[in-house]
């Protein structure tokens, strides 16, 4: 798995990166907002999975997800939302926009493993 980790919180990225590394994910690219995530996907075509926060400055996670799903080059990229937005409406909104799965913060390493299919 080659994963793009997108979260505006540097410490949340650090927590997730530590857990993902322990779970055997060897390639992890980071971005701190949706726009930078799209740039990272453009320059790293091998990325196959995006772990995507929702509430971020510049471009939020939902807008980023919509952009990813509009680009045929990224049609096979798996997008898993990882956010504190936990109400049912938000989950349904993300799934309707093309998210493959949804992780609610706070999460355990077991949840990350299960939702990413590791």
């Amino acid at each position: 798995m080659k994963l793009l980790l997108v979260d505006d919180s540097s410490t949340m990225r650090r927590i997730q990166k530590n857990q993902l590394t322990a779970l055997g994910v060897s390639t992890i690219v980071e971005a701190d907002d949706g726009a930078k995530a799209l740039e990272a996907l453009s320059v790293n075509p091998a990325i196959d999975t995006v772990l995507l926060d929702w509430n971020m400055p510049e471009m939020n996670g939902l807008a980023c997800l919509q952009k990813i799903r509009q680009n045929p080059s990224w049609s096979k990229v798996k997008v898993v939302m990882c956010t504190s937005e936990s109400d049912k409406g938000r989950v349904m909104e993300a799934m309707a926009a093309g998210a493959n799965n949804y992780i609610v913060k706070p999460f355990t390493p077991e949840t990350i493993k299960e939702k990413l299919g590791l």
């Binding site: 919180s9 410490t11 509430n55 936990s86 913060k105 706070p106």
Partner: peptide, 13 residues
Amino acid sequence: GEIANIIAGGAKK
């Protein structure tokens, strides 16, 4: 800040 964000999001549900 992230702790506040997670608490707010969790309560919002």
